[in-house]
Write a protein that binds this DNA or RNA. Structure first.
Length: 424
RNA sequence: GGAGAAGUACCCAAGUGGCUGAAGGGUCCGCACUCGAAAUGCGGUAGGUCAGCUAAGCUGGCGCGGGGGUUCAAAUCCCCCCUUCUCCGCCA
């Protein structure tokens, strides 16, 4: 969410941001008109309230002296009705402004390219080379089914499409990856581990930007105000909602594993096979709370932390900078890490690292003070996958497959797996 | 699920209808004591948010878990909700 005062002072900045994203900029003028009306009303109603307060005080004083105050009381009763009417009008306008503000995306950072969609993203660098095979490589869904470690059919039976049962070495690989990733981030990259709830309330979903605009992408628990987390970003970022953080605690780095749940409402027919697009998947997430002046440096570090996992696993990847059309609603700048996926003969997103600047912090009201007595400022929040576990399993199975249908276990995972090869 | 208690600013905490933006602490700053620090003593500043006029600042509104209500006037009275704690019940 944006600061109303900032929009008032610099509307062009926000209009330009919307234009760069290819979105309707007239919302800014709508907000400004409502804001003007709102401030006029405030001025009017506050004058009346000030009068009511002082006159009411007179009533108390008169009564103490045993004098008659009924004239003031009658007058104030009338004034009270007037105030009530104006208050309601003001509340209505403020609700309208709030609704508009919650629907305005973040302003893209100047450094990111203009573009309509993912085709105009820019590759920043490549690590490794697409894996070459001396035989015809199989997609991971075939490898997994043939090894009897992935079971899509029974998952469909017990739940539905876009769910998977992982068995034996696949199940263990999943556990191994989660532990491996968390261990690297806590012991080498300075993150502190969090294990949060998998359900959050609507206020949290609003705080990070999933609500109100993207309700159809998430699963809502019937008869409650709870949502299944689409990413650990939501519970972890909202940990500090409505708090003023101590500057000596900044920057805060958290790493959290959760299962993630996504309705995938707009993805019918896409990535229907395998582990790439599931309603439930595992992810290790990195979340940072930092000083505003540090956030872009922190974004580079966070992206490097996520990339480090791919490098340790020996998986070829590229780093891509998102263009304005693909940067996402809440982010000002975003890098995707895309892993080489032989079955797609292409790179597939496996991590998304974003700087939200104060966009989420303002929604969630997460602040800090530079010194005692100083005015609280909003922190900058960042997050990134470190990594998506299901896609990592798919990438390992495909890139490390052998001609006989088994899968070599990457060196870094062997201590966690206890074996160096997954075979029949 | 049942019974009871509580929620006041960054933290602790007093406050049951008007003079309470809210005592007192802590935190923070200065001074004294000390070789220095701690502890102690003395003095002092600040406090969230919105609006207005401005250069610092000043004025006003809101605000005491959240939302509604009663009243000329609400931290204080009433209703609903949330959270925490204690006891009981149930349970992995």
């Amino acid at each position: 969410m944006h600061d109303l005062r900032e929009i008032r002072e610099n509307p062009e900045k926000f209009k330009t941001g919307l234009i760069r994203r290819g979105e309707d900029r007239t919302v800014i003028d709508k907000v400004l008109n409502l804001d003007e009306e709102r401030r006029k009303l405030i001025l009017e109603v506050e004058t009346l309230k000030s009068k009511r307060n002082s006159e009411s005080q007179q009533v108390g004083l008169l009564k103490k002296k045993g004098e008659d105050a009924s004239e003031i009381i009658v007058a104030m009763k009338r004034l009270g009705d007037e105030i009530k009417e104006l208050d309601e009008k003001q509340g209505l306008i403020e609700t309208q402004i709030e609704e508009l503000l919650l629907g305005i995306p973040n302003v893209p950072h100047p450094s990111i390219p203009d573009g309509k969609d993912d085709k105009e993203n820019v590759t920043v660098n490549l690590w490794g080379e697409p894996t070459k095979f001396t035989f015809d490589p199989k997609p991971h869904w075939d490898i997994g089914t043939d090894l009897d470690i992935l079971d899509f059919d029974r998952a469909g039976k017990i739940t539905g499409s876009r769910f998977t049962i992982m068995k034996k070495s696949a199940a263990k690989l999943s556990r191994a990856l989660i532990s491996f990733m968390i261990d690297v981030h806590t012991s080498q990259n300075g993150y502190s581990e969090i294990y949060p709830p998998y359900m959050v309330n609507s206020a949290s979903m609003t705080g990070t930007g999933q609500l109100p605009k993207f309700a159809e992408d998430a699963f809502k628990i019937d008869k409650t105000d709870y949502w299944l987390v689409p990413t650990a970003e939501v519970p972890v970022t909202n940990m500090y909602r409505d708090e003023i953080l101590d500057i000596s605690d900044l920057p805060i780095y958290h790493v959290a594993y959760t299962a993630c749940f996504r309705a995938e409402a707009g993805s019918a027919g896409r990535d229907t096979r395998g582990l790439i697009r599931q309603h439930q998947f595992d992810k290790v997430e990195l979340v940072k709370f930092v000083l505003p002046e540090d956030s872009y440096n922190e974004l580079d570090k966070l992206t490097a932390n996520a990339a480090r996992i791919l490098e340790l696993l020996g998986l070829p990847y590229r780093k891509v900078m998102m263009c304005t059309g693909d940067v996402g609603f809440s982010a000002a700048k975003k890098f995707d890490l895309e892993v080489w996926m032989p079955s797609y003969n292409n790179y597939v997103e496996i991590s998304s690292c974003s700087n939200f600047e104060a966009f989420q912090a303002r929604r969630a009201n997460i602040r800090f003070r530079r010194e005692a007595g100083a005015k609280p400022e909003f922190v900058h929040t960042l997050n990134g996958s470190g990594l998506a576990v299901g896609r990592t399993i798919a990438a390992i199975m495909e890139n490390y497959q052998t001609e006989d249908g088994s899968v070599i276990v990457p060196e870094a995972l062997r201590p966690y797996m206890g074996i160096d090869k997954i075979s029949k």
